[in-house]
Design a protein around this nucleic acid. Structure first.
Length: 405
DNA sequence: ATTGTGCTAAATCGACCCCT
DNA sequence: AGGGGTCGATTTAGCACAAT
């Protein structure tokens, strides 16, 4: 439970008059301080719908106490660090993040003209100036805090949670001048009794992807769970969960690139029944009403919707899934796989522990960079699983002394 | 109030480079 | 050798402002 100070007033998060106090502070532009630490880190008040919520300042998650709900491992440990300030520019007053994307959100040419050289540059590219589709997916997932987990949520995280948090997160982001939430499409949970109403709302949501009579076509961004890929009469099709009877079309070139680039993801997805494959894609509608995907990237998430990128990380997540303490999975964004980054943080008292997974293919340079990474953060303990050396060591537990390295 | 003009930002095109 | 991917240059669209 968080406590805040607003000017001279101290208020509990659960206080009945919290909303009134926040509304008042919002008008007076009073900056709340979180009382998890002394001195308390500054926060800001955001208006979300008709509610006022207290959010941490961008890049300040590390300033909170590890037990605090607002605590977040520093961005430098994941792939997010290099993107902050360039591809992602956060306005510290409003908390809005302006995102620079490396893919188009509109198309001017003929409908069927596939972009020749504009393939989805993803996991390998180390561009720090712009977000790839998967970088955007990672950032959305991160901001929606879907990379956070505690065993207390077991069985409680469903698609409607995922969807709500993603949309909430998107409201705090702008892309190419407009709010991301305007062009983000996340299918709502499908219930057959509500079929007609759902399809009606879907048609409304997709209105801005309808091609205009003249001028460029606007694209929308889909985030959804892949149900299956199939063969269409020409090219391939993508069926998204919660969207029965609706297909997204991919041309053969895109499908082939997708299978090549995301071969590890496809394999991981195929290897575990409980895992989900999350797709992000830009798409537009044809005049005939067909949805055609322009660019696409995917990400594998475990049963609890926490992303992973290797079988080793999956093992780690399986172990973390049973742990009551909060864990935060790090996302790589555009960071190449051969660069060390923390796999996850485990928030146990007295100090958070960085969990590192060293791939079997690591070389000397990897170890060296990893050492520097750990040394640069003396405020954390570290736990390292060198996969080449064998099975995963036991996770650190509360009150533990310095874990084995 | 409407239309014209200038500016900015984004998309596209073409050339080059790298990896397979 | 070929297909992608990247980078840089060019073109275009959209927006804001201004003038009639």
């Amino acid at each position: 439970m968080r406590r805040f100070s607003l000017a001279d007033q101290v208020i509990e998060e659960a206080a009945p008059d919290l909303q009134d106090a926040l509304a008042d502070a919002y008008r007076r532009k009073v900056r709340p301080l979180c009382l998890c630490k002394e001195p308390g880190p500054a926060m800001y008040i955001a208006q979300v719908g008709d509610q006022y919520v207290v959010k941490r300042m961008p890049l300040s998650g590390g300033g909170h106490d590890p037990s605090c709900f607002s605590y977040e491992p520093p961005d430098e440990l994941s792939g997010l660090g290099v993107l902050m300030g360039s591809a992602i520019q956060v306005d510290s007053e409003s908390g809005m993040a302006a995102l620079k994307l490396d893919f188009s959100l509109s198309k001017v040419g003929a409908r069927s003209a596939p972009p020749v050289g504009a393939g989805g540059s993803d996991s390998v590219a180390g561009d720090t100036k712009k977000l790839s589709p998967r970088g955007l997916l990672h950032y959305l997932w991160h901001e929606a805090e879907l990379n956070v987990w505690t065993s207390r949520w077991a069985g409680k995280r469903h698609w409607w949670n995922i969807r709500w948090h993603l949309i909430e997160a998107a409201r705090q982001m702008t892309v190419k001048g407009g709010p991301l939430s305007d062009i983000l499409f996340v299918p709502e949970p499908f219930r057959s009794p509500d079929k007609t109403a759902i399809e009606q709302r879907r048609a409304e949501a997709l209105a801005s992807a309808v091609p205009p009579k003249s001028g460029p076509r606007k694209l929308m961004i889909l985030v959804g769970e892949v149900k299956e890929f199939g063969v269409a009469r020409s090219g391939h099709k993508l069926v998204v969960k919660h969207m029965p009877g609706f297909v997204f079309l991919l041309d053969d070139g895109l499908y082939r690139r997708l299978q090549t680039r995301f071969e590890p993801e496809m394999a991981l997805w195929g290897a575990d029944e409980a895992s989900h494959l999350i797709a992000i894609a830009t798409f537009g509608l044809t005049p005939a009403g067909l949805a055609v995907i322009e660019e696409m990237a995917v990400m594998v998430v475990a049963e609890n919707w926490v992303p992973y990128e290797s079988a080793y990380e999956k093992k780690l997540l399986d172990a973390l899934a049973r742990v009551r303490e909060r864990s935060v999975k790090s996302l790589r964004y555009s960071l190449p796989l051969d660069k060390p980054a923390v796999a996850a943080m485990l928030q146990i008292p007295p100090r958070p522990v960085g969990l590192y997974v060293v791939p079997p293919s690591s070389d000397h340079a990897y170890e060296e960079t990893l050492g520097e990474l750990i040394a640069s953060r003396p405020e954390f303990d570290s736990w390292i699983w060198r996969t080449a050396d064998g099975e995963m060591p036991p996770l650190p537990v509360r009150q533990d002394r310095v874990p084995v390295t």
